[in-house]
Structures are given as structure tokens and as C-alpha cells.
Nucleic acid binder design. Structure first.
Length: 175
DNA sequence: ACAAGGATACCT
DNA sequence: GGTATCCTTGTC
């Protein structure tokens, strides 16, 4: 029986380790009719603190990034390139801006496609990642097979300083 | 290879 | 009030 991942477990500062652990977990989405869809998370990226130049909060607290400073366990959804919504799970204790970008789930690759297919938009920005909100994370006991977990640099962050753009904070599993 | 597309942040 | 930039995608 799958169990929801508790917000409390997202409120520590080990965001990179948290991101790695989210690969293989389940993204659950309640549809308007009440039906629940479950998608296994295959690819994520960690964004960790104001010192991380690829993190939106590297420029400090703004109306957009305010959500990142909240205690872990809420969604951060923003618009990129004017077209695509990106969904992140906020992590860290209150006052520490960090999040995990969900880049892909099984059968859907690409963060923009993912949000489109699951009808995730900015209406979920700042909303708690609980079953009641309609979008949450579950652990169904699945274990990523040994050797299937891959690590590499994050995508689309070349604008950041090479030191940060090169950090191996993208995690995915080879299916 | 590249345009589309709109919010955001940072100027003047 | 103007402009550069952005955690992308589909079509060229």
C-alpha cells in the first residue's frame, strides 16, 4: 500500500540527497472526477540555496521566489519561456530556499510536457504537497535497481557560473 | 537550427 | 515604461 511522503521529511537541508531519493518515488495526481493517476518519477534536479547560482533564489527573495523560502513540502510552479510550467517540490527548513525540479516521470519525458499532461499549473504554486491538494508524492516501496541510477549536470543552466552549472545535481534512472 | 511565448527582474 | 533573460518544446 503506497504511503504519502510527509512534508516533515522534506524540511532538512540535504536537498541533493533528497533529490536522489525522489527518483523511483511516485507522483500522484487526483483528476477532476476523483480518479488518481500515479506516475513513477524518473528524473529530477536539485536546486540548493542562494549560493547555488542556478537556483532562482540566487538573486534573493522576490515575489516569485518567496515560495522557495517556505518550509519544505509545498509546490513551486513557475512559467518558463512563456509557454511551459515547471513543477518543483520545495525542500529545506523555513528561510532556506531549495527545491527539487521534477523533470520526468515514466512515459513522459520533459518537465513542460509533464505539467501539461498532469494539468499542473501555477494554481498549485505554494500549495502543500498533500493528498488533499490533489498533487502529492508517494512511496510504494519500489527500489531503483542497482546501477540504474544515473547522475549528471543539470539542464539549461549554462547561464550560471561554471562551478554551479557543472554540479552533478541531476538524477535519473535508466529504464 | 530556431521561433514561439509571457512573466520576471532590473534597469532608466 | 523598456529590455534582457529564462530549469523548453515542436517544427523547421
Amino acid at each position: 500500500m503506497p504511503r504519502a511522503v510527509k512534508a516533515k521529511s522534506l524540511q532538512n537541508t540535504r536537498t541533493v540527497a533528497l533529490a536522489r531519493g525522489l527518483v523511483g518515488k511516485v507522483l500522484a495526481r487526483q483528476r477532476p472526477g476523483g480518479r488518481v493517476e500515479r506516475h513513477r518519477i524518473t528524473e529530477v534536479e536539485a536546486y540548493d540555496g542562494e549560493s547555488d547560482l542556478a537556483c532562482h533564489a540566487s538573486k534573493g527573495r522576490t515575489p516569485r521566489t518567496e515560495v522557495l523560502y517556505r518550509p519544505g513540502g509545498v509546490w513551486y510552479v513557475y512559467l518558463c519561456y512563456g509557454i511551459h510550467e515547471m513543477v518543483n517540490l520545495v525542500t529545506g527548513p523555513v528561510g532556506y530556499p531549495a527545491a527539487v525540479l521534477i523533470r520526468g516521470v515514466e512515459g513522459i519525458s520533459g518537465p513542460g510536457r509533464l505539467t501539461k499532461r498532469l494539468a499542473i499549473g501555477r494554481q498549485l504554486n505554494g500549495v502543500a504537497a498533500t493528498r488533499a491538494s490533489g498533487l502529492w508524492v508517494e512511496d510504494d516501496g519500489f527500489v531503483v535497481p542497482t546501477g540504474a541510477l544515473r547522475t549528471g549536470p543539470r539542464i539549461g543552466v549554462d547561464y550560471a557560473d561554471a562551478e554551479w552549472a557543472g554540479k552533478p545535481w541531476r538524477f535519473w534512472m535508466k529504464l
